[in-house]
Design a protein around this nucleic acid. Sequence first.
DNA 1: ATGTCATGCCTCGCATGA
Length: 259
Amino acid sequence: MRIATWNVNSITARLPRLLAWLESSGTDVLCIQETKTTAEQFPADELRELGYESAVNATGRWNGVALVSRVGLDDVTVGLPGGPDYEGVQEPRAISATCGPARVWSVYVPNGREVDHAHYAYKLQWFEALKASVAADAAGARPFAVLGDFNVAPTDADVWDPALFEGATHVTPAERAALAALREAGLSDVVPRPLKYDHPFTYWDYRQLGFPKNRGMRIDLVYGNEAFSKAVTDSYVDREERKGKGASDHAPVVVDLDV
DNA sequence: ATGTCATGCCTCGCATGA
């Protein structure tokens, strides 16, 4: 089974590339982030024509996540149970479902903006709720994984220039401690291989030639439990999808499983 | 080459977020 996660930065803007990539890559289950659409506007019909079911948590212009599967899509949970509000609203940042043999989450962790911003505190609270929600499945025997845009670089090697990130979000000890807490709950980081260069970055800013200069970050992560991680036969970042006109600023992370 | 991009509106340019 081939499972992937991809922050598409608008599923409307990305639809031609998304449909072409699903077919060419042979992906069975895709975790999507930043749909930037309402659930009503989500292109479920186009995906169904390719043989994929969809489950969507999306409310409009910002955020939005989805699960797309051609191997089953059952027991869908929309949202993060017990998750915090931001400015009085439960933002659409999580959805989970059972896709064939695996239980899967698609998450778009809050960005945080600045360390002294309310959004940063919200980010840490969001991680706390995520850990509580996934703890049982993380410790369970069924293959289970949380995939998505975590908006945290796990180590200094996961940013192109750590010196530039001093004092910034995505690299703080508290954010990395939130990832460590997920690992302590039974999940492990399925690190993909890069298709070029020595580090598997997954995101490159649109600005200042970020991609051509490989000024990237690894913030799109796959956190799998023991059964999931043991079944992994390969994993890579499909940087080809970051190239050319009409690319997202994130590349898909692909995981092959023997399940 | 690939020197932002995407959305949505008090909508044809700007504010916002990343």
